[in-house]
Design a protein around this nucleic acid. Structure first.
Lengths: 147, 147
DNA sequence: ATTGCGAGTTGTACTCTGCAACTAGAGCAT
DNA sequence: ATGCTCTAGTTGCAGAGTACAACTCGCAAT
């Protein structure tokens, strides 16, 4: 087995370990905001507002799932919908003030946990690791077999 | 925000994306074996048989959840229960022949999917990525009670 | 035998999810 | 303009996964 094949095996195994583990600890890490809700809010903050369809595509979720998540977040007062004047089919989603505050609070708590976990990593490794993960996930969202 | 802090944010976000996606799409990719089922079968293979309670403890699942999973796996003919002659409360779970075959098959398919997804990565990047994941998970299991 | 503990099952309720059918707006071809 | 097709989003439905609580049954100590 080549070094590359060994590395792929390791990546598979460790990603599986992580996936299983994340499910178990998701509730503990951010009990007031579900995993998906948190992710969607974060995306809205980064993007400065986007469409439900964009969220669905980016996270490989069905549009109906996003629709319901969005409805729940709106009900909770965390986001608001703004009709796109250019295209009346489109609702541009934005964080509300409350949404920004809640997101910031949860992010602080999560960040503390991650920082502690990654505290002794050299900066160069952190940057590379982040890049690898982005690359891996980008490839996965490009329509390839997910797993 | 420093480069390291930005990287930590990205790692956090991408790990979350992956975790959710892996869980959601495992069912689509491997209809006959959910991520949890796959993990449980793998554990049974490694351990050479164990109790439902052990599975629950190891994966931080409720015993009722494990009970139902086990029932489904037995219904599917992948595992069998053997009453412990020492203690009639206990059912020792074992893989069946079929269970071993299915587990091996799914493992092969998962491996192929990972290989394809990572096919165009330079070997040096694969090796580093694998190392980062191992390091991350090792730290996670040592510190915070994740599983 | 009584009491208490451990293993496992079942009833119930909830969330997340996808698929399919639907509405409605936009854009293009004729 | 008229119609066809595409896109954005909603809703009905079904199913998996999960937890909690109440339960049964077997074991062990007193």
């Amino acid at each position: 087995m080549t070094a590359a094949e060994t590395a792929v095996e390791t990546i598979q195994r460790e990603m599986t370990v992580f996936a299983r583990r994340a499910r178990a600890s998701a509730g503990r890490m951010h009990p007031e905001l579900s995993l998906v809700s948190y992710t969607l809010l974060g995306h809205l903050e980064e993007s400065g507002g986007c469409r439900a369809t964009d969220l669905a595509a980016h996270y490989a979720l069905d549009k109906s799932t996003v629709s319901r998540q969005v409805a729940a977040l709106e009900r909770a007062g965390l986001i608001e919908r703004r009709l796109d004047p250019e295209d009346h089919r489109v609702q541009v989603l934005h964080l509300t003030e409350t949404g920004q505050e809640v997101l910031a609070q949860v992010t602080r708590r999560r960040r503390a946990a991650f920082r502690e976990r990654l505290a002794d990593w050299p900066e160069a490794d952190l940057v590379r690791f982040a890049g690898y993960l982005e690359r891996y996930n980008a490839r996965a969202s490009a329509g390839l077999a997910d797993d």
